[in-house]
């Protein structure tokens, strides 16, 4: 579930407020959005992909709420890690076309 909106990284663009398909965030004027309905989070990780500054962290635990340690996550390269894996950051674009499903899942 969503655990972190990094105050230091967030630029209050509110893209996550729009992009979250289950409406977990609330926008706050001139401030980072707040996690208003954490229990509604479906752990789909889409908000992380739409965050342009890697300010969000979704824990892999779908049913339990934990507390994220921002500095640990930043040091481990976890913040933004999924965005890089799918090629949605500057510098990782080549990842967009590296889908290897045709080797391991389907023939075509």
């Amino acid at each position: 579930m969503i655990e972190l909106v990094s105050e230091s990284r967030c630029i209050a663009c509110n893209l996550c407020v729009s992009a979250c398909p289950v409406n977990v965030f609330d926008a706050v004027p001139d401030s980072p959005p707040v996690i208003a309905r954490q229990d509604d989070c479906q752990t789909c990780f889409m908000c992380e992909l739409y965050c342009p500054v890697d300010a969000l962290y979704v824990s892999p635990d779908a049913d339990r709420v934990g507390i994220a340690d921002e500095s640990l996550l930043a040091d481990a390269g976890t913040l933004g890690g999924y965005r890089r894996a799918v090629g949605w950051t500057k510098g990782s674009e080549s990842q967009r076309s590296t889908d290897q499903s045709f080797r391991v899942l389907n023939k075509y």
């Binding site: 967009r96 076309s97 590296t98 889908d99 290897q100 499903s101 045709f102 899942l105 389907n106 023939k107 075509y108």
Partner: peptide, 14 residues
């Protein structure tokens, strides 16, 4: 951005 195989053929199954 479909991937391409060694022969340069786009692979569109995914």
């Amino acid at each position: 951005p479909f991937p391409r195989d060694e022969g340069g053929t786009p692979r569109r199954g995914s």
